[in-house]
């Protein structure tokens, strides 16, 4: 009885791996044979969380220049191309006005200082992401392990349904060969580029989290951006949220964004 249940669980587990993974698993299995097995693991320095979240203290950013280091750090690190042609624009993290970032909270009369501050916007890594719901191939998906909304660049068919679904305009499409928008000498050799015809966006720097580093924008913010586990009451993020009044973008849509703003 017990063993048959275990067998069922195992089969269900294999089935859950899905169509795509199966041929590859078969390829590695015979080499493993009966001897020692191959293993996949997270790596020793990995930072983990149940749901990564970010708090941006907008009071600390007064001018456009204050935001530049973060935008530049991100775009340089991830080989985000720059195009003069506005239609081909690609951005992972960028600056906008209060009334664009928070259209439903923009009163006619607000603190002048707050109104003229630049606001940093990026993918919200929603807990209920509409882009993931829309994607017809699971090329964009919410990672079970840490709640990051990821892109599988090898699977994306470029239908741009996710771009229509995202209520924050966080997604960019490679309308042309991205290499054309990069300066060859400045390419980060450690991080892949993208190909034309796929959608891209912020990934909360999963490649850095895997190596025990904070996201690039957090590191460049000099403490003005806090990053941590939303589900851990002891995390720095939760502490900052306890002590400060924060708002989120378009909260009424039920997407549960994980980027919070102290205004």
């Amino acid at each position: 009885m017990k063993s048959s249940r275990r067998r069922f669980m195992k089969l269900a587990g294999i089935a859950a791996l899905g169509l795509g993974a199966q041929p590859a698993i078969k390829a590695i299995a015979p080499a493993a044979g009966n001897g020692p097995q191959t293993q996949f693991s997270q790596g020793p320095n990995v930072l983990t969380a149940r749901q990564w979240a970010m708090v941006i203290d907008t009071r600390r950013f007064k001018t456009t220049e204050d935001l530049e280091p973060m935008i530049e750090a991100c775009h340089k690190l991830h080989n985000v191309p720059h195009f003069e042609e506005k239609n081909h624009e690609i951005k992972w993290i960028w600056e906008t006005h209060f009334h664009n970032a928070f259209p439903d909270s923009a009163n006619r009369f607000i603190s002048e200082e707050a109104e003229h501050r630049p606001y940093l916007v990026l993918c919200n890594h929603c807990q209920n992401p509409p882009c993931v719901r829309a994607c017809p191939t699971k090329a964009t998906f919410k990672r079970d392990s840490d709640g990051v909304v990821m892109m599988d660049m090898h699977r994306c068919i470029g239908c741009r349904f996710c771009m229509a679904a995202c209520p924050y305009g966080s997604r960019s499409f490679n309308f042309v060969e991205p290499l054309k928008g990069l300066v060859e000498k400045e390419i980060n050799l450690k991080y892949p580029r993208r190909m034309k015809g796929v959608v891209e966006k912020c990934t909360f720097c999963v490649e850095r989290l895997a190596e025990g580093q904070m996201p690039a924008c957090v590191e460049a913010s000099g403490g003005a951006i806090v990053f941590g586990d939303l589900e851990d009451p002891e995390s720095e993020v939760r502490q900052v949220l306890r002590e400060n009044f924060t708002i989120r973008r378009k909260q009424s849509l039920g997407t549960e964004p994980c980027v919070y703003y102290i205004v």
Partner: peptide, 11 residues
């Protein structure tokens, strides 16, 4: 060339 030959954009 890519869909850049169309008038579509990020928005």
């Amino acid at each position: 060339i890519g869909l850049g030959i169309t008038g579509m954009s990020r928005d």
